[in-house]
């Protein structure tokens, strides 16, 4: 089987299956949690829960990332905060603002958007890859992280790292013909998509729900009298 045939499989039926499996799995996990329900207010809260949700998201995206030093999460372990932050920023830039990835979105949802020049996306992906390596080393040497890290954590790291690495290699034509590199990238992406609902990487969906729940709790501000 030549690289072209592998690529056709990875871009065709395998991607198709992986995408539907991911959507199925995420829907299953999300609804199995949401359907359990949550506690209702026994008395009317003083503040607005909706406002609480809005404020918590605004703080999370527009305030704390720019003044991280006011938070204990940053001060107690700046490496994880900066490394993790850069890694997530890198993912966002590459997956949303990289031209080839935008075209994937366009083909799936029907519309596209302006993208960043290749060198910027390229540097961001390199930063993301370096951040992941540093975070892995930290996980292996940090006394507490070492204790709470099991196979699930390392698999999650690996399945996210491989698409990033193969994508970078593909952009720079390192390690084979373009279609061989492309095939490798697509296979790792397909595997990641299958792994997402089976693992904690699904937090990119759950995060918004849990943050909303916390936000409305913050918004209550006691009991109305």
């Amino acid at each position: 089987m030549n690289s072209q045939a592998v690529l056709e499989f990875a871009r065709g039926p395998f991607f198709y299956f992986a995408l539907l499996f991911m959507l199925f799995g995420l829907a299953f996990r999300l609804f199995s949690v949401i359907s359990l329900g949550w506690s209702r207010d026994r008395v009317s809260p003083m503040g607005s829960k909706t406002k609480g949700v809005v404020v918590t998201f605004l703080k999370a995206f527009l305030i704390w990332p720019f003044i991280p030093w006011v938070k204990n999460t940053f001060n107690r372990n700046p490496l994880i905060y900066i490394g993790g932050g850069l890694f997530h920023l890198s993912l966002f830039v590459v997956i949303i603002l990289g031209t080839p990835h935008m075209l994937v979105w366009k083909s799936l949802i029907g519309f596209g958007w302006a993208t960043l020049p290749l060198p910027i996306v390229d540097w961001m992906s390199a930063i993301g890859i370096i951040a992941m390596v540093i975070l892995l080393i930290n996980r292996r040497i940090h006394p507490v992280l070492k204790l709470i890290s099991g196979p699930a954590e390392f698999f999650a790291w690996l399945f996210v790292f491989l698409p990033m690495l193969t994508g970078y290699m593909m952009t720079h034509h390192i390690g084979g013909s373009y279609e061989a590199l492309y095939a490798r990238h697509m296979i790792t992406v397909d595997v990641l998509m299958i792994w997402i609902p089976l693992s904690r990487i699904s937090h990119f969906v759950f995060y918004f729900f849990s943050r909303a729940i916390h936000g409305q709790e913050f918004g209550k501000r006691g009991v109305a009298v």
């Binding site: 539907l20 499996f21 959507l23 199925f24 799995g25 995420l26 829907a27 299953f28 996990r29 999300l30 609804f31 199995s32 949690v33 949401i34 359907s35 359990l36 329900g37």
Partner: peptide
Amino acid sequence: AVGAGAALGIGAALVNQ
């Protein structure tokens, strides 16, 4: 895919409850 996932998810939640 989403519908089947949601239905099974709700079913699992009901069983758990």
